[in-house]
Amino acid sequence: MSAATHTTELERQQRLIAAIFAPQMEPAACPDVLQDGARREAGLAAYRGNGLAHARNALRAQFPTVLAMLGNDAFDVLSARYWRARPPRRGDLAWVGEELPAYIATVDSLDAWPWLADCARLDWAIWQTAGAAPPRMTHADLQRLAAEDPAGLSLRLAGCTAYIPSAWPIVTIHLAHQDEAADWSMVRQAILDGGGQTAWVWRPQGDAAAEVRTIALEDAAARWVAALAAGESIVGALDAAGEGFDFAAWMQKALAEGWLDGVAAFAPR
């Protein structure tokens, strides 16, 4: 194929994409099409409407708490602005919400609810965890842990877990949305009392049929998990966790719930 004709097609396609994601309906920006006037605008609107509707429906599934917090109308506005500001990079809608939490943090009209972005991070973590690989920890990992110097080992967190530290009580807010009888004045109190929460999210044993669980970590456990996620050695992570962290109880729960992918040689950074 000649380079010139390929360029013609590429430019034609670029112009249609630009017209679809343009902030205003700009038929002038549209490439030459057979249709004109209102019929051309209707055609452009159909493509925009379709792309946006697909993205919005996916975002609703991926951010149920944000949807419940904003309400349908505001969520639609947010979805439409997000779609335009950060057009999808992939054809797989499972990833369409990847940048929504960061985008929410930039939206001025949401400033009064500064926890929204972190709540969106928690929604996204739950969505990701629901489709993550099962844990890979084996007996051999445990035997290695019993036999080798733990200063030279680190624990790998499983893909079906996630932790989200926040300056806001995001777990309290999240759980209130699961509770029809939630007392919103208590939730507001939790916000005003200050103090953030670290959310810990996992899908038990990575089982496809299991529901994803979300809890708030105690401070010591939050420090422990953060250290593991940072790739610390087990001894280093225990030092980071400090007093009040029950390693034996955590490990028992970790194996029962499937929080670990295994043991790796500690590689200091």
Partner: peptide
């Protein structure tokens, strides 16, 4: 295709309702 082709809410005001309002 979508059933709401001409619906483009991006320019509407973003006014949180629902539990944002409750909180």
């Amino acid at each position: 295709g979508s059933s709401k082709v001409n619906y483009d809410p991006a320019d509407f005001r973003l006014v949180p309702d629902s539990t944002c309002a409750k909180l």
